[in-house]
Amino acid sequence: MSEVHLELTDVGIEFPTPKGPFRALEKVDLKIKQGEFISLIGHSGCGKSTVLNIVAGLYEATEGGVLLDGREVNEPGPERAVVFQNHSLLPWLTAYENVELAVDQVFKRSKTASEKKEWIEHNLKLVHMDHAMHKRPDEISGGMKQRVGIARALAMQPKIMLMDEPFGALDALTRAHLQDSLMEIQKELNNTVIMITHDVDEAVLLSDRIVMMTNGPAASIGEILSVDLPQPRDRLALADDPTYNHYRSEVLRFLYEKQRKVNH
């Protein structure tokens, strides 16, 4: 692992509301290395998405800032590709065309038409969607839509991939399939990933480090847990693994003892 890739320094944000400013985040400090898989976990409303949106450049931090490879992040861009929770595919385009929109934009001049086509198909193959690439979002299942969303993000060849509860809206079986796919892709590409989740198993299974956030308002990072399990990970083998269960209970303890949500 190399030096720091993405750096959040003292990030805080305030949103203006009719009742005065609302402080969502305070003093978020995080350093991420190239190829690391980071999960952000916390109760809903704790500002996980806000952190991700600041890294994406969709929100601007009120104080502090984000550096990616030493350069300040102040607007959205394809080098920080986002996989949105509800896939956000354009409903009038096929899977192929959705990825094409991204590829055309990112590799406008650097790839020829045939290279682009190859690259689009390659990415759809990576998420196992090559059999349905000419179908439109309303013709495929929720899991398949999310696969296309991931393919679109991968096709941007991002420096860092930001995933906002990518599997949150899916049923357990589909989610497991997609997690396996993601691990497989991660092994091949070694991307840097920040993923928001509120699924403890998902966090432990996929992450190198789990960032646990305190409850809002003025949420911050509570604890960071390094997950020292060998790759590749197998969900069945890990189910009875004492180390795995130890990590799992660490996260659960943080969420349900230290940061118990009082007002639900």
Binding site: A56, G77, F84, N86, W92, L101
Partner: peptide, 24 residues
């Protein structure tokens, strides 16, 4: 969501209108 996609892709105003706003 679609506006975010457009922003992440850094679509120009004209491309945004042509590729996202018009079809929508």
């Amino acid at each position: 969501d679609l506006k975010n996609v457009s922003q992440v892709l850094r679509l120009s105003w004209w491309t945004h209108v042509r590729k996202i706003v018009l079809p929508c």
